[in-house]
């Protein structure tokens, strides 16, 4: 069976590592990137089924990454879920407006994340 490829872009390495470990338990194939640029590179090399994107990152921030993904034909179809430690009052609509598929705030219930990934992932 094809395992869903999830690209996690976040500068918090431990969070990326822990999320990778956790998602493996749910038979996902998670890949981590520790800043925006690395994320774009990895997404380009190996198109993921879905992207988990943090907003606050040094260098290139999440919004910029999202814009570039959406602007690249090859990647524009990849659903992007914004997951951020900062809770915006209008986080969801902001995310949708920017072209994201969904929005999840940290800390999250793993089940919730898994459901969201399954819902949006394009098999």
């Amino acid at each position: 069976m094809h395992k869903m490829k999830v690209l996690i872009i976040d500068d918090e390495k431990l969070l990326v590592k822990s999320t990778i470990l956790a998602l493996r338990c749910f038979d996902f194939e998670p890949v981590g990137a520790f800043d925006g640029l690395e994320g774009l590179e990895k997404a380009h090399e190996n198109i993921p089924d879905i992207i988990l994107l943090d907003i606050m990152m040094p260098g290139m921030d999440g919004w910029e990454v999202l814009k570039r993904i959406k602007a690249t034909a090859k990647m524009s179809g990849i659903p992007v879920i914004i997951f951020t430690a900062r809770e915006y009052s209008n986080g969801y609509s902001l995310a949708i407006q920017q072209g994201a598929a969904d929005y999840i705030a940290k800390p999250f219930e793993l089940d919730e994340l898994v459901q969201m990934l399954n819902k949006h992932a394009v098999p």
Partner: peptide
């Protein structure tokens, strides 16, 4: 918001690890 952010990240990490342990699939 900074405090929230600073709290969220390690708690998310801890939660992730706890989940892994709970699932006993590591």
């Amino acid at each position: 918001s900074s405090v929230a952010h600073e709290l969220r990240t390690p708690i998310t990490i801890i939660k992730n690890f706890l989940e892994i342990i709970r699932l006993k699939r590591m």
